[in-house]
């Protein structure tokens, strides 16, 4: 005898034409919103901003919104209302999509009817203006990647050494490494950058460029975080591995190099990549250093461009740059984690 839960699940998971129809209505609501809006913007041109505003306020856009709203609301109401009254597996998905369509239309509608719609479009979606700074943004993206990559490389090297030190049996070896890590984890990166630049580079006349100062401080900071990642990676290797290595006559360093670290490295690749993603975003803080034009990273480019033209589309430019860099990396982390879960070979 099946339980009540099983019977409900069996019944609701049956596919019917009506249920699938409701899924299509809900999906249609979302699709009409996105496809319709994108199509209208494309047809009328995203630049200049006046034509974008024209599109937003056009009767055609209104029709798109009304249609999406109607489809979304219909799917939501019919889907939820029919729940458990008929097989509704697909219909409930349709209702969820319907709710999303209604919310999207609601937000767009409020924006469209708002007093400041013209100002908002001019200030945030002025892509013509953004185009003028295209080269600057591309250069900024390169610098963001470069600063983060150099910082992460320094951080990995430093983190590995620090991790070995904090795993020492001796307090006198552990303590300085621990102090370093706690200092860099316990103070804001923006302070570290400011102090490194004003206090050390300028204050002590250390002969390195501002750009090098930025990369160095980012590396010193990443080192503290990588150290904790490496420490947990090394500690996650079973004790028997070290015992087997030492029993074969390997020294401590040999057992680390040939047995423990190769296994630990595999395990820390996902958290290290996450750390790299955080570092990419943290490069935005180097604007406090006042970099040269060629040295500016994405955020500094956006900030300077804004100061020049007083238009917030510049920040949209920066966010496009950041996401173009980080989204593939986030995807890579997920893939690595799945691969790692599969184990050796």
């Amino acid at each position: 005898m099946k339980t009540r839960g099983e019977r409900i699940r069996e019944w609701t998971s049956e596919q019917t034409a009506l249920s699938l129809g409701l899924l299509l209505v809900g999906a249609g609501g979302v699709a009409v919103f996105f496809v319709g809006t994108i199509l209208l913007v494309w047809l009328n041109g995203p630049t200049p901003w006046e034509s974008l505003l024209e599109t937003v306020l056009s009767a055609a856009q209104g029709t798109v919104l009304n249609l999406a709203l109607a489809l979304g609301a219909a799917a939501a109401i019919a889907g939820f209302a029919s729940y458990r009254r008929m097989p509704t597996k697909a219909a409930v998905s349709g209702a969820a999509l319907g709710v999303q369509a209604v919310l999207l239309v609601g937000v767009f509608y409020a924006f469209r009817k708002g007093e400041n719609v013209a100002l908002t479009v001019r200030q945030n979606f002025n892509f013509e203006l953004l185009g003028e700074f295209g080269d600057a943004f591309v250069n900024g993206a390169k610098n963001t990647v470069f600063l983060a990559a150099v910082g992460e490389a320094l951080g990995i090297a430093l983190g590995l050494v620090l991790a070995l030190l904090i795993l020492s049996e001796r307090v006198v070896v552990r303590a300085p490494a621990r102090a370093y890590i706690n200092f860099f984890r316990g103070t804001p990166l923006v302070w570290q950058l400011a102090f490194g630049y004003f206090g050390l580079k300028l204050g002590m006349r250390i002969p390195i460029s501002t750009y090098q100062t930025a990369a160095l401080v980012l590396g010193l900071n990443a080192g503290a975080y990588s150290a904790e990642i490496f420490r947990s990676g090394i500690q996650s290797i079973e004790r028997g591995q070290r015992e087997a290595a030492r029993s074969l006559g390997m020294s401590y360093m040999q057992s680390m190099r040939y047995v423990i670290l190769p296994q630990a490295f595999r395990r820390v690749i996902p958290p290290l990549t996450n750390e790299f993603i955080i570092l990419i975003k943290d490069t935005s803080l180097v604007f406090v250093l006042g970099l040269t034009l060629e040295g500016r990273e994405l955020f500094a480019v956006a900030r300077d461009a804004y100061a020049e033209r007083f238009n917030a589309t510049m920040y949209i430019g920066a966010v496009i740059g950041y996401l173009a860099i980080t989204l593939p990396l986030i995807r890579a982390v997920t893939m690595l984690e799945n691969k790692l879960r599969a184990g050796y070979r």
Binding site: E243, A244, L248, G249, M250, Q254, Y258, V259, P262
Partner: peptide, 30 residues
């Protein structure tokens, strides 16, 4: 320890090396 071999309950083979690698690593490095 190079004169004393030990075998453990949990094998403790090095998972990142082949059988050959497991046997040769200490021969080569130690």
């Amino acid at each position: 320890r190079t004169d004393i071999g030990i075998v453990f309950q949990s094998f403790n083979l090095f998972p990142h090396m082949t059988a050959m690698g497991n046997i040769t690593i200490a021969l080569r490095k130690v």
